[in-house]
Simulated scan of single mutants.
Amino acid sequence: MTHLNSTQILLASRPTGWPTGENFEVRTVPLAELADGQVRVRNEFISVDPYMRGRMNDTRSYVAPYQIGGQISGGAVGEVIESRAPELPVGTLVLHQHGWSDVVQADAAAFSLVPKIPGVPNSLRLHMMGMTGLTAWVGLKVVAQMKAGDTVFISGAAGAVGTAAGQIAKLLGAKRVIGSAGSDAKVQLLKDKYGYDAAFNYKNGDISGQLHALAPEGIDVYFDNVGGEHLEAALDAFNDGGRGALCGAISSYNSTQPSQGPGNLANMITRGLKLQGFTLANYLEHAGEFSSQMGQWFAEGKIAYDETIVEGIEHTVEAFIQMMQGKNVGKMLVRI
């Protein structure tokens, strides 16, 4: 039995406003010998995601907050390097939620076996072919009930979920897909690579005016990753019977003051709108259908993706903060 150490990143204190390195602790701990039914996994990639910021607050949410002194959990993909569980032999690729560490050891039931696909990076299991892609699929198809011919607006469109959602919307038959992003370069990327019919830089201001200029006939579906002014702009732009899937509100995650709600919520009444927040855990029954469809689209060469990869477990916090600042294109990952 090989004895290894595990480098883990813990929550040292709860951030006030923007997180800093002082809110985290890097700790190296020795791993015990494997027990029957356990496996040891060397992570290849770990994920940093916007929802993690909410879990750093001690508030009620859809998932329990991180505990002070506890490891930051979240998505990771890696390979079994030692095993005392016959169902997960050495060399098996697995997904798990043990999060920010280089090596993890636990019962086999805590890991999900995923096949290695020739020519497809394992990292895609953490975004386009994993929970990120499924989130976009569920938000559009199940929550917002997008129909062929709809005009769709996606905020935060250059991020991991946004780049997936724009492509999925087009493949599901959207008439027009519009996105917002935080730089002119990202706006151009959305149009050149991800099939967006139009996009705008929200940092130029007047989000509602920019959206109206690109969707003068209104929008039917809104996929929200940002909240705040973007949500208010969508409420202005909705056609009668419009539907919104509220996935995230990153504009307020680091705010130290209560967020001000949209001033035009009455449009929900006068236009018969439906806005529904969702978290993926309540829709996992759709994973099989999504995997089949996404696999087919990949095989047909219809899916593009970007990854922003930071090297080394020691730079995980830096990667997380950069992701929160919008410095990534596509999925932000840490390669171990």
Rank of each mutant, 00 (worst) to 15 (best):
W18Q: 09
T28D: 15
V39E: 11
R42H: 11
E44T: 08
E44D: 10
M56H: 06
D58P: 01
Y62T: 04
S73A: 08
G78S: 08
A85F: 06
V94M: 09
G99W: 12
W100H: 02
S101K: 14
S101N: 14
D102M: 05
D102C: 03
D107F: 02
A109N: 07
V114C: 00
K116N: 02
P118F: 01
L124A: 00
M131A: 12
L134V: 01
T135C: 08
A136G: 14
W137R: 01
G139K: 10
V142K: 13
G149Y: 13
D150S: 06
F153M: 09
G156M: 11
A160V: 00
K170C: 04
G173M: 07
A174F: 10
V177F: 10
S180T: 09
D184C: 02
A185L: 03
V187K: 03
L189W: 06
D192F: 01
D197N: 07
A198D: 15
Y202W: 10
S208C: 06
A215P: 02
P216I: 02
V226Y: 14
A233G: 08
L235S: 07
N239D: 12
D240S: 12
R243Q: 15
R243L: 13
G244I: 15
S252G: 04
P262N: 14
G263W: 14
N267S: 14
K274Q: 15
T279S: 09
Y283H: 15
L284F: 12
E285Y: 10
F290I: 00
Q293T: 00
G295P: 00
W297D: 01
W297R: 00
F298S: 00
A299G: 03
A299I: 00
I303C: 00
I313F: 00
I321N: 05
M324S: 08
Q325T: 00
K327R: 13
G330Q: 02
G330S: 06
K331I: 01
I336H: 07
